[in-house]
């Protein structure tokens, strides 16, 4: 088993918490993990990405090769496109459709979405709306995780355990809210 994942979004959107849950679930599965993150200046509203690699055999590189990613998971549609050439030919893009516009020259969002829709393996989701509907408007990133969970080769139970483990210190209410967000994401992706 090997999954090479590029997580992306805009600094502050919370891609690292998705990575943390996947990492936690992968550890429980006794998988090898490498996860390269971006810290520092680019976190200030710039584009950020994390290379997350999980595998049943040892992993050499911290970075994913171009054309090697099984998945691009993105909290922002243009950021999903930014890493398209890292995707393997049979890889999947799972992305939020709501643009995060903090630059004056953001492209026409319809063109961005058209380019995404033209991909063979793509899941487009308004994760903010799903999160709101699930009663957890701040849980967009966990919704997105739910939406791609079936592509990660790890069981839902493991992810739910991971969510419990990570949010436990914030109280049972937070755990339940995030489990709800996760399941809502799963349901929305199947639609």
């Amino acid at each position: 088993m090997k999954k090479d994942i590029i997580l992306t979004g805009v600094g502050g959107q919370g891609i690292l918490s998705i990575a943390t849950v996947i990492g936690q679930a992968a550890i429980q599965e006794n998988l090898y993990i490498k996860q390269a993150e971006v810290h520092g200046m680019s976190q200030r509203g710039g584009d950020v990405q994390s290379n997350l690699r999980i595998s049943s055999s040892p992993i050499a590189s911290d970075l994913i090769a171009r054309g090697g990613a099984d998945l691009v998971i993105s909290l922002e549609p243009m950021e999903a496109l930014r890493y398209r050439h890292y995707l393997a030919k049979d890889g999947w893009i799972v992305t939020n459709v709501t643009p995060f516009v903090n630059i004056p020259n953001y492209p026409d969002i319809e063109k961005v979405l058209d380019e995404l829709r033209a991909m063979q393996n793509v899941i487009l989701l308004d994760v903010d709306a799903v999160a709101k509907e699930a009663g957890n408007p701040r849980g967009s990133n966990i919704v997105l995780l739910g939406a791609c969970s079936h592509l990660l080769g790890i069981s839902s139970e493991r992810f739910e355990e991971g969510i419990r483990g990570i949010f436990a210190r914030k109280g049972e209410e937070m755990v339940e809210a995030n489990l709800k967000a996760f399941r809502a994401g799963q349901a929305a992706a199947v639609k």
Partner: peptide, 30 residues
């Protein structure tokens, strides 16, 4: 990167999608 190291070894690059068109830089900001 894994890619430039691969090229230095004379190995064929992996097959990739073309870079997307509707992407612009998003520099950090205050």
């Amino acid at each position: 990167t894994p890619d430039c190291v691969r090229a230095s070894l004379g190995m064929q690059p992996h097959e990739t999608f073309a870079p997307a068109e509707n992407v612009v830089p998003r520099p950090p900001a205050l």
